[in-house]
């Protein structure tokens, strides 16, 4: 139970008012048009989406799972940061391709890249999936806040979920992406400042960096200080194959789109940047900040470990970072620490609410139900769907409750393991067609269910580790989409030439490039980039 002084209450309430006010302040800009409500008019300088990337990817559950990894595995846990590594490649490959396409959403990209019925089916499928997924993520992050408040203030678990997600929805509904992005900037600065401060305070509480190292060795856990401590190729707690998987997946994933579930958040920020160069810089620097953040967190978690070395209950030691702040900060600073936790929470939930509403509004409503919708109708529908995603997040959040780890299992494998390679192929291989891509998505949902739950339950398949499941799913899903691709016709050549000329994808596009040259459509890349920027400004 955390005790707040008068100054602590002041900091917390002042911060809530500042955040909601700074978001609502952009009400007039947000309601100007659909492009403003969902993409801030496509005119942002690189540092705004960059800060938003960092702030959105720092959520209430992030220090929990990161603390869990580092408490269990020491420095080996730092390789979890490789998850963000795909941005380093994507910033100069798929980010630029996607930005040139001017697609508002990843679902819209489907109807630019593929042709005919499968392209439309893929757009509808992905839009519906994204609405549900963002409800799930907002619920997941929301209930993490519920758990923190239950531990800190003895509140019922739903208080933290409902109160703080609703506060986010106020400015996400009134100002849309403008409110989200402006609030993200002050939230990103606040949280980075506190993250650094907690690590300094934690290191001091544990006696300084040298004392931490000595105490870890005295506890007979020297492997915690060695990030290259492997227990075998696939065996033990620290297998080498896990690290190899963690390097291969982000590296090659950066050549594709939607290879990581983070892509959908990034895609919105890519299209909100004012130029292609800005989009690249924002993705690269946002991810770099995430990796630096993790390195700073390690200090606080290792300090917590030497102060509390014998904890075995994951639900307790995953609160390491929160406990260092609440237990070691002096009165007055505790309230500021809670304000930073609110910043971490608000930035993620507000972004996710707006993202879920964008797929429901731009793709399902504006593309399928009312293609002639006015900007006023689009903004109104955007606000309604922000509210519906919020209510959906309450449903998922209350279902998750304290079973965060059980649901993490579901979240990771439901999503992208089997579609990882098709998501790369759609960018680098002209012959990969709409039917092949759609079959990969549908097959992935079915096969991951079989591999992860059904077959092990009946003893047909042994319980595999997550990285082993990844490789198995990749092969099994490929056995579906590769035959489907070759048994169906390539996409319409007019469509392929159009997407090639506009977006300049890398990889195996020979026949399409030759056709584009024959039609005299190929210009210099610089001219294409300039035209894309002019069109974006016009739309903004």
């Amino acid at each position: 139970m955390v005790h707040f002084s008068g100054l602590d209450y002041f900091w917390s309430i002042a911060y809530i008012l500042l955040t909601v006010f700074s978001g609502v302040l952009f009400y007039r800009l947000g309601k100007r048009s659909g492009a403003d409500f969902f993409l801030a008019g496509r005119g942002l300088p690189w540092w705004l989406p960059a800060t938003s990337n960092f702030a959105t990817h720092t959520a209430t559950d992030t220090p929990m799972w990161f603390s869990g990894w580092v408490y269990r595995s020491g420095m080996y846990g730092i390789w979890g940061s490789l998850f963000a590594g795909w941005c380093a490649i994507s910033a100069f490959v798929s980010t630029r391709i996607f930005r040139r396409s001017l697609a508002s959403t990843q679902a819209e990209w489907q109807t630019l890249r593929f042709s005919g019925l499968p392209a439309e089916l893929m757009r509808g499928w992905m839009a519906g999936w994204q609405v549900a997924l963002n409800m799930f993520i907002a619920g997941w992050v929301g209930i993490a806040m519920g758990n923190v408040c239950a531990w800190a203030f003895n509140w019922p678990i739903w208080y933290g979920l409902v109160i703080f997600s609703t506060l986010c929805a106020i400015y996400a509904m009134t100002s849309g992406f403008w409110g989200v992005i402006i609030a993200d900037v002050q939230q990103g600065i606040t949280m980075l400042f506190i993250i650094i401060l907690v690590s300094i305070w934690a290191a001091m509480a544990a006696g300084g960096p040298t004392a931490i190292v000595e105490k870890i060795q005295a506890l007979n856990r020297p492997e915690m200080l060695n990030p290259f401590h492997f227990t075998g190729f696939v065996t033990g707690d620290y297998p080498l194959l896990w690290l190899i998987t963690m390097i291969i997946v982000p590296f090659f994933g950066g050549f594709g789109m939607a290879t990581h579930s983070d892509w959908f958040v990034e895609a919105q920020r890519i299209q909100s940047a004012d130029t292609i160069k800005s989009a690249s810089y924002s993705i690269w620097s946002g991810a770099a900040a995430v990796i630096v953040r993790n390195s700073i967190w390690v200090i606080a978690v290792l300090a917590f470990f030497v102060l509390n070395p014998y904890m075995t209950d994951e639900s307790q030691y995953q609160l390491a970072w929160f406990r260092m702040g609440f237990e070691y900060f002096p009165p007055g600073l505790v309230g500021f620490f809670f304000a930073a936790i609110l910043a971490i929470h608000f930035s993620t939930v507000s972004g996710i609410l707006n993202l879920g509403a964008m797929y429901a509004t731009r793709d399902l409503y504006n593309h399928y139900i009312n293609p002639k919708a006015t900007d006023k109708q689009i903004v109104r529908m955007g606000r309604l769907w922000t509210l519906l995603v919020l209510l959906g997040s309450f449903f998922f959040g209350m279902m998750i409750g304290k079973d965060v780890t059980k649901w993490l299992f579901f979240a990771l494998w439901l999503m992208t393991a089997g579609t990882w390679l098709p998501n790369i192929l759609q960018v680098i291989w002209w012959r990969f067609n709409g039917w092949g891509y759609l079959s990969a998505w549908v097959a992935n949902l079915g096969i991951c269910w079989l591999v992860v739950w059904i077959l092990p339950a009946f003893g047909i398949l042994p319980d595999l580790k997550d990285f082993q499941q990844f490789w198995l799913l990749m092969v099994l899903v490929a056995l579906v989409y590769l035959p489907v691709t070759f048994l169906t016709k390539p996409d319409d050549m007019d469509r392929l030439v159009k997407v090639y000329v506009q977006t300049r994808p890398i990889g195996f596009w020979g026949p399409v490039r030759r056709e584009a040259e024959r039609r005299g459509l190929l210009q210099k890349k610089e001219e294409i980039d300039l035209r894309a920027e002019q069109e974006a400004r016009k739309e903004g």
């Binding site: 439309e120 499928w125 519906g128 999936w129 549900a132 799930f136 399928y368 579901f410 269910w449």
Partner: peptide, 27 residues
């Protein structure tokens, strides 16, 4: 797993059906 999958399938298939109706109507 069953509840999570059901919700995800419900939304994904709803989107797919919207798309199919739109495509047929346009054609």
């Amino acid at each position: 797993v069953v509840i999570g999958m059901t919700v995800i399938y419900f939304f994904s298939l709803s989107g797919l059906i919207f798309a199919y109706i739109y495509y047929k109507k346009n054609k």
